[in-house]
Structures are given as C-alpha cells and as structure tokens.
Amino acid sequence: MTENVRLSAGDAAPDFTLATDTGDTLTLKDLRGRKVVLYAYPAAMTPGCTKQACDFRDSLASLQAAGYEVVGISPDKPAKLAKFRERDAITFPLVSDEDKSVLIAYGAYGEKQLYGKTVTGVIRSTFVIDENGAIEHALYNVKATGHVAKLRRDLGLD
C-alpha cells in the first residue's frame, strides 16, 4: 500500500454519509455550524478502543458545552457498533465505514506498526473539524489511553 495522504489544518474535511449504530445515517454536512471531533478507531469492543470510547463518553458533556460534537468511526458493521454502544453506554454517534473509503480519505487507514510489524489497518486518529467543515487539527497515531485528556488540553478546555 502506498503512503497515505495526511490531512492538515485548513484542509477541507472530506464529507461522508455513513450508517450509524442506531440504523440511521449521519452526514458530515448535517453537522455544519458545529465543531466536530471525529475519531477513528480500529475495532469496537477491544480493550483500547473501549477505553478511548469511554473517555470520550465521560468527557462528552464538557466537550458539548464547549461546542463540540463527538463522532466515532470504524470499519465495524452497524450491528456491532450497536452492541458496543449498549454494552458501554456510549452516548455519541458511532458510524460504520465498512469499505474504509472515508477512513482512507482522512488518511486514517493504511500501513502502521503493530508490535514491531508493518500491518495495514485503521490508524488511530482524531480530527477536529470547525463549523465550516475545515480541519482544525489532524492527529495521527494517537494513544487510546490518555488521548482525550491531551485533546482537551490542546483545545484549551482544561
């Protein structure tokens, strides 16, 4: 696989329309006028992804009070996302990108290091998108644990 295109501050956030954990669809354009934290994670109900989702869940009220909506994206099927939401009381939308086209457009799918080996998969990433649909922050290869706290500091919320 070739090197991923990486997004930078000022780039237009690639639009998407994806199925959610509730069976609805979510379109990035529908969130215009609000700031969005879109985070990409490899797989629902795995230890790291659960920790990260719960960190976002636990910070959701303060993120929303600061004007941010949170959306999680993974290649999981909507039914698995629904189980994840129910099991861990996730209170923000989870969207399914089964063909990985949106993850690729965001540079969040491709080659990465996993336990010293080069593999192809979801690159744990977070994107902060402004009210007009432009990237404010594109953070790649983030850690599952402690990332939300760091993001909050970077956004000036703590």
Score class of each variant (00 low, 15 high):
residue 47 P to Q: 13
residue 133 G to Q: 08
residue 144 A to Q: 01
residue 24 D to T: 10
residue 141 N to H: 09
residue 38 L to N: 06
residue 126 T to L: 15
residue 23 G to R: 08
residue 148 V to Y: 01
residue 24 D to R: 13
residue 16 F to S: 08
residue 31 L to V: 02
residue 32 R to K: 07
residue 17 T to D: 12
residue 32 R to T: 08
residue 1 M to L: 04
residue 113 Q to G: 13
residue 56 F to Y: 11
residue 69 E to A: 14
residue 98 E to W: 12
residue 36 V to I: 10
residue 51 K to I: 10
residue 60 L to V: 14
residue 28 L to P: 07
residue 115 Y to E: 02
residue 69 E to F: 02
residue 83 K to P: 05
residue 82 A to E: 13
residue 97 D to G: 01
residue 141 N to V: 04
residue 134 A to Q: 11
residue 88 D to M: 13
residue 49 C to A: 00
residue 107 G to C: 10
residue 7 L to D: 04
residue 23 G to F: 11
residue 91 T to A: 08
residue 23 G to D: 06
residue 58 D to E: 09
residue 107 G to D: 05
residue 106 Y to R: 15
residue 98 E to V: 13
residue 149 A to W: 04
residue 81 L to A: 05
residue 36 V to D: 06
residue 133 G to N: 06
residue 130 D to T: 00
residue 76 D to W: 10
residue 99 D to M: 08
residue 139 L to A: 12
residue 101 S to W: 02
residue 47 P to L: 05
residue 131 E to C: 12
residue 102 V to P: 02
residue 126 T to N: 14
residue 25 T to L: 04
residue 130 D to W: 05
residue 155 L to W: 00
residue 6 R to P: 00
residue 66 A to E: 09
residue 103 L to F: 06
residue 111 E to M: 10
residue 88 D to I: 12
residue 96 S to T: 00
residue 66 A to V: 11
residue 113 Q to E: 11
residue 31 L to M: 09
residue 107 G to F: 08
residue 124 R to F: 10
residue 70 V to G: 01
residue 95 V to W: 12
residue 137 H to M: 11
residue 145 T to Q: 13
residue 62 S to L: 15
residue 56 F to H: 06
residue 121 G to W: 04
residue 7 L to H: 04
residue 65 A to P: 00
residue 151 L to F: 10
residue 112 K to C: 04
residue 94 L to K: 03
residue 29 K to C: 03
residue 29 K to A: 15
residue 7 L to V: 08
residue 69 E to M: 09
residue 157 L to F: 06
residue 4 N to M: 14
residue 72 G to N: 13
residue 67 G to A: 09
residue 50 T to P: 00
residue 36 V to T: 15
residue 34 R to V: 02
residue 5 V to R: 15
residue 51 K to D: 08
residue 38 L to P: 03
residue 126 T to V: 08
residue 37 V to A: 03
residue 91 T to W: 02
residue 40 A to S: 03
residue 45 M to P: 02
residue 15 D to T: 15
residue 96 S to L: 13
residue 95 V to K: 04
residue 156 G to F: 03
residue 88 D to R: 12
residue 90 I to G: 14
residue 112 K to Y: 05
residue 44 A to R: 08
residue 33 G to R: 02
